[in-house]
Nucleic acid binder design. Structure first.
Length: 580
RNA sequence: GCGCCUGUAGCUCAGCUGGAUAGAGCAACGGACUUCUAAUCCGUAGGUCAGGGGUUCGAAUCCCUUCAGGCGCGCCA
């Protein structure tokens, strides 16, 4: 995790990184540090008035036995500044660097525009494979807003790693096996009236599911019935299998429609049922390692006093969650040879993954190190936890429906002439919902609030999309195809433009940071900052109709911002319409 | 009881690999559209960074502790 700031540079240096390295090269010998250490110590001052980069001298004080301000002054006098630095100032214990506005503009715009949509990509992961397991819903249940975090986090994380050159395998580990399917069969046989489920299958299955759990309260024997049907299913009973297949087919079809709408796809829809015939071998493998024991009739792996044991087989012989996950781990290792297997699964399952990891460790498998659990908080209702079985949930379809119709209203009001209104409403409405789920640190619980999801002002997806639209609109109206950077860049040397340029230069680092911390919100926040910087520029500076050099340089900046916004939105899984 | 996570402005949150006066958005109030899309921008107001202790030249950030909330802890997934 450490060192991303100066490691990425090995092949293609990022621009903010370039500036840091140029300064570090000259400064390193004076302070007797490695250049990498100096580069890492360089920070961005809280206020641009203080400079563009700063070197704090406090750590040098004990060794040099001098006060930090004196050290800074001394360094300022002895330092031979690189060409990009226009000015060095000493403030307190800080050595502050002001980049040459012209050099900053030129280097950043060249880097961004030349790389095009590849700006920010890296080769950190060349030759390495990552398997990412995300979304993984329980089928035969509707897609609720509670499934959004894993779905959009996983999508974004896999795109971030792809940008870093990794080969990413996206797996949807469908919850398509287990006692719940016994329950579905019982409910369908009792109350399903042999419905072929051709219309509104998910709604019907959902009502059956809720009814089962209501009836189960009054009639606890239903639970045993469900277990029995699941046993029959595992044993290959044709009737059980036929019903299971029906539920599976209609559910998957429905889920795929939702994923299409969200713009998300998977390389494999290999759910738990896929591993049924691989479980015995997995179980044997664990047993052969000699770490299992039988406790109360169940097969377990004891994990010491601090952790509860990992249950592999119930006393009736049936398999469990952990058993199937182990089978999946072995299969994935053999099939994809990944350096990492990432599980984007809610925080409440931390113990499960901790146990899996420990089991692998006890088996002496390096696979233990590859296993990464990326947890996130719960989506809750103001009343408390959501519960599918009690019917306390919000359907994603309802939210998408509300969001897109709200966008449609706004378009009718603000831009009634807009071409392709339907598509834009879809892209913006869904963008709002996705961004809402990626805006904040993933560990926080989300209280579902219609007002927040349907707000399109301020820190929202539509705000970012709107900013992109503004850029595209300017470029369209300028009507210029070729944008060779002029010699004279004085149109973008003022403070607001420079702020935008500095922000653009950070994009590559942001990709790495977001990927390594499995935290797309880092990208979300960055894009909000970029959009805000740009909108400030847009409101301050005229672009079209200025003298040619000014217009051209500003257009280049607009083009670069549009490009980074589009790319950043894509990494989050949002579309960037050209008009809205 | 034990373990994991969270606690920053009225609300939702950034900032947390220690650094300069703690930042946004929403809500409130006041401004900016005959000029590139006002889904925008500018300003005003709003803070014991949950409380206490410690480490440090320096702590919202690291350590300890207390409190509050969420989640989990053997045959569900």
């Amino acid at each position: 995790m450490s060192g991303f700031c100066y490691f990425i540079g090995k092949r293609r240096r990022t621009t903010m990184q370039m500036f840091k390295e140029q300064i570090a090269q000259r400064l390193a010998p004076l302070v007797d540090w490695e250049p990498e250490r100096v580069a890492a110590a360089l920070e961005i001052p809280p206020d641009a008035k203080l400079g563009d980069l700063a070197f704090p001298c406090f750590q040098l004080a004990p060794k040099l036995r001098k006060a930090p301000p004196a050290i800074a002054t001394d360094l300022a006098n002895r330092l031979e500044v690189p060409a990009v630095v226009a000015k060095v100032e000493v403030v307190g214990g800080y050595l502050n660097f002001f980049l040459h506005p012209h050099a900053l503009a030129q280097q950043v715009l060249e880097a961004v525009l030349e790389a095009g949509d590849g700006y920010g990509n890296a080769q950190l992961g060349a030759g390495k494979t990552i398997v990412i397991d995300f979304s993984s819903p329980n089928i035969a249940k509707p897609f609720g807003v509670g499934h959004m975090p894993t779905t959009v986090l996983g999508n974004s994380i896999s795109k971030l790693y792809k940008a870093l050159g990794y080969n990413v395998v996206r797996v949807n580990h469908l919850g398509d096996w287990g006692t719940q399917f016994g329950a579905m069969i019982v409910a369908y046989l009792r109350w399903g009236e042999n419905d072929p489920l051709t219309e509104d299958p998910i709604g019907k299955l959902y009502r059956l599911y809720v009814k089962f759990h209501q009836e189960e309260e009054k009639e606890p024997s239903l639970r045993d019935e469900a277990r029995a049907w699941f046993s029959r299913l595992e044993a290959g009973d044709p009737e059980a299998r036929k019903l299971w297949q029906l539920f599976y087919d209609v559910s998957l079809k429905n889920f795929k429609r939702t994923y299409d709408r969200l713009g998300i796809d998977f390389d494999y829809y290999t759910g738990e049922s896929f591993y049924v015939d691989k479980i015995d071998a997995a179980l044997e493998r664990v047993k052969a390692a000699g770490i299992t024991e039988v406790s109360d009739g169940a097969l377990v792996v004891p994990l010491g006093d601090d952790l509860p044991p990992c249950l592999l087989q119930k006393s009736d012989g049936a398999t469990l969650y952990a058993t199937r996950d182990l089978a999946a781990l072995f299969y994935r290792e053999e099939t994809f040879k990944p350096e990492r297997i990432i599980y984007v699964v809610a925080l409440d399952q931390s113990l499960h993954f901790k146990q899996l990891k420990l089991v692998l460790e006890k088996m002496g498998l390096p696979l233990a190190d590859a296993l990464v659990h990326v947890p996130f908080g719960l989506v809750k209702l103001p009343e408390g936890k959501m519960s599918t079985r009690r019917g306390q949930m919000v359907l994603l379809d309802d939210v998408l429906q509300e969001a897109t119709s709200r966008v449609r209203e706004i378009i009718a009001e603000k831009n009634p002439e807009l071409p392709q209104r339907e598509q834009v409403a879809e892209e913006v409405g869904i963008g709002a919902v996705i961004f809402h789920n990626l805006k904040n640190s993933r560990m926080r619980d989300i209280i579902f609030d219609w007002n927040e999801v349907l707000n399109f002002d301020g820190e929202t997806g539509p705000y970012l999309q709107y900013t992109h639209v503004r850029c595209m609109s300017v470029l369209r109206k300028a009507g210029r195809q070729e944008l060779a950077l002029p010699q004279d860049l004085s149109g973008i040397t003022d403070e607001v433009a420079q702020q935008v340029l500095k922000r653009l230069s950070q994009f590559p680092e942001i990709i790495v940071k977001a990927a390594e911390s499995y935290e797309p919100s880092t990208m979300s926040r960055y894009l909000l900052d970029l959009a805000q910087d740009f909108n400030r520029f847009y409101n301050t500076c005229r672009i079209i109709g200025e003298v040619e050099a000014v217009e051209t340089s500003r257009l280049a900046l607009v083009k670069a911002v549009a490009q980074v916004l589009r790319r950043g939105l894509d990494l989050l899984g949002l579309k960037a319409p050209e008009q809205m």
